[in-house]
Design a protein around this nucleic acid. Sequence first.
RNA 1: GCGGUGGUAGUUCAGUUGGUUAGAAUACCGCCCUGUCACGGCGGGGGUCGCGAGUUCGAGUCUCGUCCACCGCGCCA
Length: 589
Amino acid sequence: MRTHYCTDLDQNSVGEEVTLAGWVNSYRDHGGVIFIDLRDKSGLIQLVCDPADSTDAHKTASTVRDEFVLIAKGKVRLRKEGLENPRLKTGKIEVVVDSLRVENRSDPLPFTMGDPNVGEDIRLKYRYLDLRREDMFKTFELRSKAAIAARNLLDSLGFLEVETPILTKSTPEGARDYLVPSRVHNGEFYALPQSPQLFKQLLMIGGFDRYFQIAKCFRDEDLRADRQPEFTQIDVEMSFCTQEDVMGVAEDLLKAVFSACGHEIKTPFKRITYRESMEKYGNDRPDLRFSLELSDVIDLFENCESPIFAQIAQYKKLNRIKALKVPGGDTLFSRKTIKELESFVSRFGAKGLAYIQVKEEGLKGPILKFLPEDAVETMKSRLDLQVGDIVFFGAGERKIVWDYMGRLRTEVARRLDLIDDNRFEFVWVIDFPMFELEEGELHLKALHHPFTMPKNIDEDDLEAIDSMAYDVVLNGIELGGGSIRIHKLDIQQKVFKMLGISDEEAEEKFGFLLDALRFGAPPHGGFALGFDRLMMLIDKKESIRDVIAFPKTQSATCLLTRAPGPVEEEQLKELGIRIRKQPKTDASK
RNA sequence: GCGGUGGUAGUUCAGUUGGUUAGAAUACCGCCCUGUCACGGCGGGGGUCGCGAGUUCGAGUCUCGUCCACCGCGCCA
């Protein structure tokens, strides 16, 4: 239909007879001559419809409105001096139309395309219009390039792309499953995969040696700016490999993807153990674009005269007293700001937020009077306190302290504008504990997943058992992770037992895996990267929805298709399903 | 499930202490205009103030409930 895309044309095309196809970006009708900015995926060019050149084309042009679909034939002409538009890539030329066809009309638009203030809900309802924007096209062009780069890199390393089932059995990633009722087996359900975890392990047992997939995954949990119920991950698994081998492949992969998106990144990435990350940054996904490390000061409170702090300092294993020094913070933070920070951490379980200001005349703060002189001196040197600094303290149960002090660290950095948005700071978090003690002692939970290889399974202290698991973190966001898997039956059985999974339950849920481990399973391991999050970070978008063509709202609906929706009674009958509660009325929709 | 923010014309917004017929820009319709590029000029149409109760002589404005969207918590890699 077309001979060129709009921005294929330039001064060298002058005199050429061309056919262009696209949408009316805008039109300017002067009564005589009519100008139309024609848009296709490449960009804009100005069409000129002059009655002197073609009365028919001019007549047609006068009926044109925004977003009409046009096919225009004409000759490329250099614009006269003074008539160029430097804001257009094709601003030095224009196309004199001799034949114009309105291929399709358009109703007036429900919103102004390109207006950055238009609400996201209306853009999602008419997503196909939103996608016509240049910025959107660029985003998905980038996403496509990244996916292709990933495929090419993995292909070059001998990985085989294999598809795994969408209708499957629940794999226990810990999240809620999306269920699909079975018609053939009334009362039974498929689950959509939370990840292809067990299938990729079976592919290794199947001897494929190296597998990858750009896989859709499903988790029925509440949404966030960086979380959708269905998302895409680059899923990789390999056999006869060490943890180092796997991490090396992940780094090569990220390097290739970033390179395809125009960013050169350095490998290998930094590494930090899980425990060090928790102690220094308060979480297992540290943002290393800024420092502001947390310091341990629990020992300084041992002889503290405040009963609360002293008591906390008694139990060093489960309690923490952490200090966050903000250089220059005393001069930068007003009393109001400090109040706001206190209220900020209280949302995450902090009972208060003690602080010490470093003034010219010495330290100032209510907790000082409880501390022995030598403890204060030690603190000064340990934290290297300078005049103008402020130090915040978090004290209590370690999980809570880590959490709110880690969040405080990020919040402080945000407020002080310490975060360089143009940096990509990768870090591997390694040596995850195998188990997490839940609510007291009895209930062990797998921190990664129950197929992760423990390092020291015979250790008596269950909390001291490490796993061969690793997460890759970018700018404080978990991009992905992986592990070396258990390939020996006895270890897998032991881990299930430790997690409180009975033989019967293990057999029912993972019998096929246990079976497979009996038949010469090779050592293997792998990783998965959240592809949407990755693209969000590379493309510097605020929300994962911006890099997904048809995303869901926070309440997991699709404003475009209005999914989920009711189904015919007949469909339910076939599935053997009866709805107990009436669905809520949709009068508001 | 919880906390916060928002919802007024197709869209983006304004709307004072509760007080006359709810405004602007843009889009839309009509007329005019041969060098604009966010073209311009004149005129016009367009509102269940998210929805439902309540308080009041009177509600866009106050109260309660509810729905939708977004941000976060819980949940979830």
